[in-house]
């Protein structure tokens, strides 16, 4: 398991570095968004200052609207003449990728087209964090509550449930993604979404159960009991439905399901910590048990509301 993970991470890193290696050969070595109306471009060699600050050299548009050019207000050349920063008259919509075409900057050179986007790794981490904190499935989307209240009494149970759930979540989400991309969409069978996704979840639970029982009986003894509960958790079916709605790709799917599972684990752990303490507290008899758990969950939800609107990348 660990070996596979390491190999996967290495491939992932390689894929992310690959574009950087290719770009190194070209005129443009680096490009990024600066301030809210700024694009910063770095060149591999010093460029002619006159052409570099001429706004006719650059055409910039948002990818979906190629016919609408963005107005450049000012161009500032870096001191070593190896970079420019384009200042636009309007704030840029950084969620879209921006296409910049540079022409006539160097003699006898074809126009170079570069695409400026927010870093993809940042975007992926953004998805992960969003599912973990900002859109935490338990505290801000209110899913998986039955299992949440049922298994958050003890920290040990919480950890066991959380880990088991995360594993099943990731595996079933990835399978659902393959089914959705290569079977449901091409054959126009999207109305079967619910049946297919729930079927895949049951299948994953059954498979994990069998494999764990054979491979690691010790682990099975501690986690096996939670497997049955996984299927009664709405989060596990909500994630594939969200994937289908948003047309996520493979890596995004992985991140979202990891975030969903991790978020559930986090919620369970926080809640169980409070509930262990609560056993010692003097609670009015009417509130004992489930009602007070709901009030505590409400306070957590209120606290998680503070994460909304958070933007890191």
């Amino acid at each position: 398991m660990k070996k596979i993970m390491t190999r996967y991470t290495l491939t992932l890193l390689f894929l992310l570095v690959l574009p950087g290696l290719v770009w190194a050969q070209d005129l443009v070595t680096d490009k990024s968004f600066g301030a809210d109306n700024e694009i910063i471009i770095t060149f591999s060699q010093p460029v002619a200052p006159q052409a570099a600050v001429d706004s006719a050299t650059y055409t910039v548009y948002e990818e979906p609207d190629p016919d609408i050019r963005l107005q450049i207000k000012e161009i500032i050349l870096a001191e070593d003449e190896k970079g420019v920063s384009l200042i636009f008259s309007e704030p840029l919509n950084t969620t879209e990728s921006h296409v910049v075409t540079i022409a006539d900057l160097l003699p006898d050179e074809e126009p170079t087209t570069i695409i400026v986007t927010k870093s993809y790794l940042g975007y992926l981490i953004g998805i992960l964090l969003s599912a973990l904190l900002i859109n935490n499935f338990v505290f801000t989307k209110y899913l998986g509550l039955c299992v949440f209240f049922g298994t958050s009494k003890r920290k040990d149970t919480a950890k066991g449930m959380g880990f088991t759930f995360t594993i099943v979540m990731v595996v079933s989400a990835i399978m659902s993604w393959f089914f959705y991309q290569y079977i449901l969409t091409p054959f126009d069978l999207n109305f079967l979404q619910i049946v297919v996704f729930i079927g895949l979840v049951s299948l994953t639970v059954q498979a994990v159960d069998t494999i764990l029982r054979k491979v690691n009986p010790a682990l099975f003894n501690s986690f096996g009991v939670y497997l049955v509960l996984v299927i009664a958790n709405c989060v596990i079916i909500a994630v594939p439905l969200i994937l289908a709605d948003n047309e996520y790709n493979f890596l995004e799917t992985f991140m979202l399901s990891l975030g969903a599972g991790g978020g559930f684990l986090l919620a369970l752990y926080l809640m169980s910590s409070v509930r262990e303490r609560m056993d010692l507290a003097n609670i009015p008899p009417t509130f004992k048990g489930v009602p007070i758990a709901f009030i505590v969950a409400g306070q957590f939800a209120l606290a998680f509301l503070g994460f909304s609107g958070l933007q890191i990348f």
Partner: peptide, 22 residues
């Protein structure tokens, strides 16, 4: 009607029903 109030309302209503039962 804020989203998180759902927890409080359900918790309080359950407590209320418990109170009646007791």
């Amino acid at each position: 009607i804020l989203p998180c109030a759902g927890f409080f309302v359900v918790g309080l209503m359950m407590a209320f029903f418990n109170y009646i039962e007791i």
